[in-house]
Design a protein around this nucleic acid. Structure first.
Length: 717
DNA sequence: ACGTCTACCGTTTTT
DNA sequence: CGGTAGACGT
């Protein structure tokens, strides 16, 4: 076969990575260096020249988006279907494994997937049954604890509490929660991974089967793998397996969620002939932007080391804008975007990035005012919306009566006269009999154990679900859904709500039926259409609803910007305590993760980057005088320019960075100083000269103060 | 069973 | 300051 198209257009390092014949290959791929390209081309190379069967290849990603993209690109490069390859997310592949071997994994064939929201509900219920006060023991915390344990491969029996009440209590919750999941046939996200790991660990036959099958394992975004994912990969990749991992330690921004960058070093250690290839040529950004990114990330200690470069021109300097406050910050961005659009550029080519979602509000206001269309990423995904989940809960219950989570959700939705105390009776009965809620409900109806009205309502509910299944299940998916929406009166209930929300809800319900119509069962071989659809709904929660067709400005957090690129990028709120965030400033490793986030943000920009900060910001109703983010100060002065024209209130932040431009009084704006009485603060402003010289300092202890330099004993620190 | 009030809380979120 | 979850009152 002619391999030209596979190697064409690749640079030296990329080509080396694609054709490497090492058993273990580590590709350290900088931002915009073509890592997906390498992965896709390597798969094609293995098939076309090494005669590896597609059947023997597994490629793992973190997001559905990435796995779809990989699959499509492999198919178009090879010119044939990639369906015999296992390409998917960690969760998707784990799910596939568990479905194929449900019995071995000790799961019912009908098991359903809990998303985080469902999981929290189950945990709440379990904790209530344990009589744990939810002020003292927040369910969120228990959820976090359970998932953390699972991410580390731990079951309740593996947890040492050493008398620690926090750990021992949460371990009990974990245990009870597992029991609840087992009776309901429910599996949460972390459980998918852990169960899939245990399945292979404890079943030699299966393990060997898959180890023999997969001759090549490729993993994307390896810096984001957690403990259990790493362990799972190790299990599958036996000695004969080639393993390629691609990642960037500088873009690891999910440590707070269990991702372990150390896994990269660990890989290097544990896979003996591992070869490391660095992709450092960047095809995205200007020289200036890359230099800034390199300079910022160079301040991190824990790095494998990498320096991005480009053939591209230097481009424009990075613009800094010191806004008076967050409104003015938003106003400035809106004005710049309007200019940009007027020059014939698309709105969709520019992005506004921020550290936390709360910042989006003000920005939205000003875009709205200027009538600039925008789209905010984040928020509820399609399959996470209440009306959609209600419908799905009915379907889940129809197909799996054991599903207690679904039962709880819809037993009184829409309201049918089953109040808190009636439902509590059902729960109690289930507890006593060690049965599911569904079984308990039937028993209660048979015994007429509730008031006549409530008994009738409960019986009506049971009939509704039973009948729904009997009548609908032979029909096509979308009809089943349509009929469910109608027969349960969900549509009616939401139609009664008022306002724009109700309209959106009705649209979403209609959309759900059409999503089912377009649903491709092929992606889930061997599953019944409904089971496949329900799994799909949990595993791929879908896009955040917005008109993607319209040309609009993209607004999102820095986290969700990873992997994307835009010609024009604004990063708002470049302020200490906001970015780096207050909660991540104390510990060195957290601060380094913030810095990586800054690195991710900067490297999103292709042509032009604006960094903004406000001198005054209202935060939770309180006025604050933040200091300029250290990440701005870490960018060399020659790469940036201050765009504020009127600098009566403030001087350029980097005025003092070269000796000649030292602030008149020996202090620079943004500099930290110490005062004998007020402690540490940051210089906000200064005015006057000689004996009249005054500086405005924002002290951590007492806030902003003007001080006469001649009297105040300020020390630089 | 529904609507109103209040107390609380307030990074980031691939699945 | 603003959103929301749960309590409380009708």
């Amino acid at each position: 076969m002619d391999v030209t198209p596979i190697l064409d257009g690749l640079n030296k390092a990329q080509r080396e990575a694609v054709t490497a014949d090492n058993q273990a290959l580590l590709v350290l791929a900088g931002a915009g260096s073509g890592k997906t390209r390498v992965l896709v081309h390597r798969i094609a190379w293995l098939i076309a020249t090494e005669n590896i069967s597609p059947h023997a290849i597994m490629a793992v990603t973190f997001t559905n988006k990435a796995s779809h993209e990989m699959k499509n690109r492999v198919e178009s490069l090879l010119g044939r279907s990639a369906s015999s390859m296992w390409i998917g997310t960690f969760h998707g592949l784990a799910h596939r494994l568990l479905r194929a071997h449900a019995r071995d994994a000790e799961l019912p064939d009908t098991f359903q997937i809990l998303d985080s929201d469902d999981q929290l509900r189950v945990i709440k219920r379990v904790m209530r049954e344990m009589n744990l006060d939810d002020n003292e023991w927040p369910p969120k915390q228990a959820q976090w604890f359970i998932n953390k344990q699972k991410d580390e491969g731990k079951r309740p029996k593996d947890i040492q509490h050493n008398g620690d009440l926090f750990i021992s209590t949460h371990t009990k919750v974990y245990h009870a929660y597992q029991q609840a999941c087992a009776t309901g046939g429910l599996v949460d996200f972390a459980e998918l991974l852990l169960k899939a790991f245990e399945l292979l660990r404890d079943n030699q036959h299966l393990r060997e089967h898959y180890q023999e099958r997969f001759l090549h394992l490729l993993v994307d975004e390896f810096q984001d793998t957690n403990g259990i994912q790493y362990a799972w990969l190790r299990l599958i990749s036996a000695s004969n397996c080639g393993i390629t991992i691609v990642g960037d330690d500088d873009q690891s921004i999910y440590g707070w969620r269990g991702a372990k960058i150390e896994n990269i070093q660990r890989f290097d250690r544990e896979f003996s002939d591992a070869k490391t290839i660095r992709l450092e040529q960047n095809y995205r950004s200007t020289g200036t932007i890359l230099k800034a990114a390199n300079a910022v990330i160079a301040n991190n200690q824990e790095r494998m080391g990498k320096n991005l470069w480009t053939d591209d021109s230097e481009g424009e300097p990075i613009s800094l804008y010191a806004a008076f406050n967050e409104q003015e910050e938003a106003r400035f961005m809106a004005a710049r975007i309007a200019d940009w659009h007027q020059q014939g550029n698309a709105y969709s080519e520019c992005a506004i990035l921020y550290r936390s979602n709360a910042q989006s509000r003000v920005i939205e206001e000003f875009l709205l005012q200027r009538q600039i269309p925008y789209r905010i990423y984040g928020g509820l995904k399609f399959f996470e919306r209440a009306e959609v989940k209600d419908t799905l809960a009915y379907l889940r219950l129809m197909y799996n009566n054991q599903d207690d989570a679904a039962f709880e959700r819809v037993v009184n939705t829409p309201p049918r006269g089953l109040g808190q105390k009636s439902v509590e009776k059902v729960r109690e009965m289930a507890r006593i009999d060690q049965s599911t809620l569904w079984e308990a409900a039937q028993k209660i109806v048979a015994e007429s154990a509730l008031t006549p009205k409530a008994t009738a309502a409960l019986s009506g509910f049971i009939e509704l679900v039973k009948l729904g299944y009997e009548e609908f299940h032979p029909l096509p998916l979308s009809e089943q859904i349509q009929l469910t929406i109608e027969s349960t009166n969900l549509m009616e209930m939401y139609a009664k709500e008022k306002g724009e929300k109700a309209l959106a809800r009705k649209e979403n319900l209609a959309e759900l039926a059409s999503a089912a119509r377009e649903f491709d069962v092929e992606d889930y071989p061997d599953l019944s259409p409904m089971t496949a659809f329900l799994a799909h709904a949990s595993l791929e929660a879908g896009d955040t609803q917005a008109e993607q067709y319209e040309d609009c400005v993209q607004m999102m957090t820095l986290h969700s910007a990873k992997g994307l690129e835009f010609p024009l990028v604004f990063i708002a709120g470049m302020e200490e305590k906001l970015f780096p965030h207050m909660m991540s400033m104390e510990e060195a490793d957290k601060l380094e993760e913030e810095r990586r986030l800054a690195y991710v943000g900067i490297t999103r920009a292709m042509k032009k980057l604006y960094l903004l900060y406000a001198e005054k910001r209202r935060l939770w109703g309180k006025e604050t005088y933040p200091a300029v983010s250290r990440f701005i100060r870490e960018i060399p002065a020659q790469l940036k320019e201050e765009v504020r024209l009127n600098s009566q209130l403030s001087q350029p932040v980097f005025a003092g960075e070269s000796e000649s431009a030292q602030g008149a009084n020996g202090f620079n704006l943004g500099q930290f100083v110490e005062h004998p009485k007020f402690g540490v603060g940051v210089i906000l402003n200064y005015e006057g000269e000689g004996a009249q010289a005054r500086v405005q300092v924002n002290f951590d202890s007492v806030g902003a103060k003007w001080l006469v330099l001649a009297y105040a004993k300020l020390e630089a620190c």
